[in-house]
Design a protein around this nucleic acid. Structure first.
Lengths: 205, 205, 205, 205
DNA sequence: CATGAATGAGGTTTCATTCAT
DNA sequence: TATGAATGAAACCTCATTCAT
């Protein structure tokens, strides 16, 4: 017996999106090996797991497609955040929040998983690595401007400070994701703002 | 006779340790599902994967045993770091470094992996959650002492600052593990020290 | 109107022919199980594999249709070759070559494949078996005539000789198909002629 | 539940042999794709098809192992047949019969199947091709000796004759395998002897 | 008629676990 | 205790076939 069939082009796109979303959630929650095609199919309301193979060649490529999406979002956010204007504090806050937003979309994790065995085009990993450096450069340039304008000491190690800030953001996100912040009744936005504020205060001349 | 028995017990302990170590490495690298009993056995120089079942009831319990070890190490480090004396800066640095050391021993990850399907005694997760709070409390008490001694403003939100610092540490460890720090030629110890130093500077009265 | 209909029928016939040809080639090259409906459809320039089911009830029947065609060609060639006239040598050569021509059209293989699981009407296999006997009879009657005319010894076992000749033809075809003859720079026509010539020489009184 | 286990080394070898035999028969009968691991396992009295993978890495390698065996048998028979002595007729008969015996062991077919998709070491196919040429050379040298001794005309095309004889043998085997000879009450040995005898007679000076 | 997305049965393969030795 | 062959459940994936459009 054959039931429910998507027919219009609309449906097809929708289905792909549903699968991507469902799969993303599962991959994040259970890892690549821990996630089964059957469960993805079931949650995406596919009658049969064979259906999934209409849309994605195999599990590896499905994973890859999700990574691509994550990468794109990451790039977009960086580009937008880089266009910011305002005071050094405002700009640092903005880029930090953008970074937090990206990391909160847990797909980012997918890219840092151990994927050695995956037959994905290596390029995606390279692109991801480079992107990370772009974020750091973007923040560094804000800090350098601050230096020029006399806000920071000339001796300030801009690179280390950038990593220091991003590292902190990374950690906040981690805490948020695992529910610690909720347990402790601390909002992540508050945390970010206070942190940046204290930190800037600490590196100000 | 007695010696022989003692010898055997020794061997057994050694074997268990080898298995735990090998399994830990694999679980960290490949995840729970991605790691096979066969590979653990092979790397632990067991002739057969059947042998592993003499020492551990099943894969879940092996995983649990590793988590227990991680937990114990974590507790030990906290206890030791809590005994510290010296200036507020010195004590904050010390506890932060201890935290970093714990997180660097990647087993910690094992405890934050998604193990919903694992039939591990829940208790271990509870104990882990509580331990996290103990770390925060331990740092908070240092900060509170600083407050009392007039180093920090009375308005300072001690809890948020604690999380802020630990979050940053978490992030640094993450960066270290994925090789970013190496790529950028930044040492983690340096990063920690500078970060704590700037941050304290920022929250000082 | 009528023209249009005729046109369509023409198209249909064409399509059926294309499918049969494409499918035949694939079945020969990859076997029944090794050939997919999708590939047949793709090579036959059908938009979809569903379309194929308009023309053939299922894979089995498509296979059956190809066998039928092979059978018909086989019968036709036998009928034509049987009408031959000339010397015994000429007639033997002619029928042998006809047999070779039939076997070279690889469809014949399709009929000797193991199709136990195929739900083809048994009749086709029976008809094929009988046809084989017809070929033998046809050659036997030529040989018998030779006997009557005093070319061969009365003791000559006509049946065995027939099989002997056909068997040799079968083998030549096999060698040709797998490229051995090409490797050795031997033409199949030459081989057939020389073989028949030597063999006749051997059985002549 | 776990049942019946082979334990001794004897058993293991036996099991491999059983699997090879059963698989060979099925591959010959149904082709590579048409044969399922499950059926091989069932016929080899394995409780589970997983068991087969203890002995063979996968379907391809199982197929390869069978081909290797066929190749070895083929080589052995050729070597033995080449050592023959006696009259030209006797030696031709002997080598022809050896060839028939090899081809009757149907594994030979396995090597001429379309295996493009198989991930087997190409070498086996090359070795098989060369072996074929060795058979031809071996027969050619007998014929050449006959020439030297004045049995055959100097003009005799030794290569073509060799192929002619082998081709015939190939055909006889084919007829035998598909039951035609049985239907016609003709023994293959008889057929071979008569054929060689007639043929030699035909090419004698 | 034609399409092609959907289905589901069935194939290959892996792997945790058991248990006879 | 130690072994490792055996098991079977379950994973991924393919493909003949159907049927809404």
């Amino acid at each position: 017996m054959i039931k429910k069939r998507a027919r219009k082009t609309e449906d097809k796109k929708e289905r792909v999106e549903t699968i991507l979303k469902v799969a993303r959630d599962l991959f994040i929650k259970k890892g690549f090996k821990g996630t089964t095609i059957r469960e993805i199919a079931r949650r995406a309301k596919l009658e049969s797991s064979g259906t999934l193979y209409i849309y994605f060649k195999n599990k590896d490529e499905l994973y890859g497609a999700i990574c691509e999406k994550a990468l794109k979002y990451n790039v977009d956010m960086l580009v937008e955040a880089s266009k910011s204007s305002g005071s050094v504090f405002e700009r640092l806050l903005l880029i930090s929040k953008a970074y937090v937003r990206v990391q909160m979309r847990s797909e980012s994790e997918l890219l840092s998983m151990n994927l050695n065995d995956l037959k994905l085009s290596e390029s995606i990993f390279k692109r991801f690595d480079e992107l990370d450096k772009d974020w750091i450069n973007s923040m560094s340039s804000i800090l350098n401007e601050g230096k020029k304008n006399g806000y920071f000491d000339n001796e300030l190690d801009v690179l280390t400070v950038s990593i220091s800030i991003y590292g902190a953001m990374e950690g906040f996100v981690y805490y948020k994701k695992f529910g610690y912040l909720d347990d402790l009744n601390v909002s992540i936005d508050d945390l970010v703002e206070k942190h940046i504020s204290y930190f800037l205060n600490g590196i100000n001349k």
